[in-house]
């Protein structure tokens, strides 16, 4: 009988089972970094590089010429209408879904997600089908001298459609995690529905609300597909920033196209920074429950 040395049966003591060897780690990091640079960083740099290729002066002219300014204005208008409406809808929908039990709740939840699953082009076409000249409401609209398609209302509608899920989606899990005991406590203490909403519910979700709004804003300003279908591409009238970029690019006006695109890219960067800041606050608010 021979004694078996212990070291043969037990694994090396310093080895951590969840850690790979240094070479494998280096290769994985390199892969991830090169992927990120190629698909995210490079295009971003290219946008600013192309935009400034002919100097700052040309850049400023490109973004301050009347058509560009009109596009900026329209983009801001669409966002300024879509966001408050989505705020109201998002809070109401999240409140309903998170705090009450009712029949058809899962259907409502899927409906809110619909804009995520439907192609934006289809969304735009739906509005053309309803409000267009040949659409269901077309003759009535023409009689009353109203236009929705190829006009600002159509762009606003399309923007609202694609941004519906953002705020509600952000709030539902947050409100579900917080439960409704605080609201019950407020009502027992004599608070009215509005007082409960204003003093208890809204302060508890404010960071989630801001986070949803930031995402909603980014999508509202950057939307292309749905808006493109209903816009009609009338320069200075129904062009949003992203549509304006497309027109300039199709006219081989690359510098101007990239200059306007750089505005959208800047918006994205600002959104990203804000999002990172707010994200931490949301996590804090969700975890700072009453449960010890």
């Amino acid at each position: 009988m021979t004694a078996i040395p212990l070291s043969q049966t037990s694994p090396a003591p310093h080895k951590v089972v969840t850690q790979e060897s240094p070479q494998v780690r280096r290769i994985l990091i390199l892969l991830a970094l090169s992927f990120l640079s190629l698909f995210l960083l490079l295009p971003l740099v290219a946008v600013f590089f192309e935009a400034l290729r002919k100097g700052w002066e040309v850049y400023f002219v490109a973004i301050t010429e009347p058509d560009a300014l009109a596009a900026i204005r329209l983009t801001l208008i669409a966002a300024a209408i879509a966001i408050p409406l989505n705020l109201l809808f998002g809070i109401a929908a999240a409140w309903t879904i998170a705090k009450f039990e009712f029949r058809g709740k899962s259907i409502l939840t899927s409906l809110i997600d619909l804009p995520f699953s439907v192609s934006p082009v289809v969304a735009g076409l739906i509005y053309v089908l309803i409000f267009g000249l040949q659409g269901w409401a077309g003759p009535w609209l023409r009689e009353h001298d109203l236009s929705v398609i190829f006009a600002v209302p159509g762009i606003v509608l399309a923007t609202i459609f694609v941004t519906v899920p953002f705020i509600a989606r952000e709030l539902i899990p947050l409100m579900q995690a917080q439960g409704s005991e605080e609201e019950e406590a407020a009502i027992i203490l004599g608070a009215s529905g509005w007082q409960t909403l204003w003093y208890v519910t809204l302060p508890n979700i404010k960071w989630g609300l801001l986070y949803g709004t930031i995402l909603c804003n980014a999508r509202a300003m950057g939307e292309f597909g749905a808006v493109s279908v209903v816009s009609g591409h009338i320069r200075g009238l129904t062009n949003t920033l992203s549509l304006h970029v497309e027109i300039l690019y199709n006219e081989y006006n690359f510098v101007a196209a990239f200059a306007v695109a750089s505005l959208l890219a800047l918006l994205a960067l600002v959104t990203l920074a804000l999002k990172t800041l707010v994200e931490a606050k949301v996590a804090q608010q969700a975890s700072r429950g009453n449960h010890s």
Partner: peptide, 29 residues
């Protein structure tokens, strides 16, 4: 309605208003 019953209710998980100070919690009613 609950508001008109004048009951005091204490929850198992306290249900204190997390966004308010202790003083504001007690003063809420």
């Amino acid at each position: 309605h609950i508001r008109d019953r004048h009951v005091g209710f204490v929850f198992q998980h306290y249900a204190l208003f997390r966004n308010m100070t202790i003083f504001d919690n007690v003063a809420f009613g």
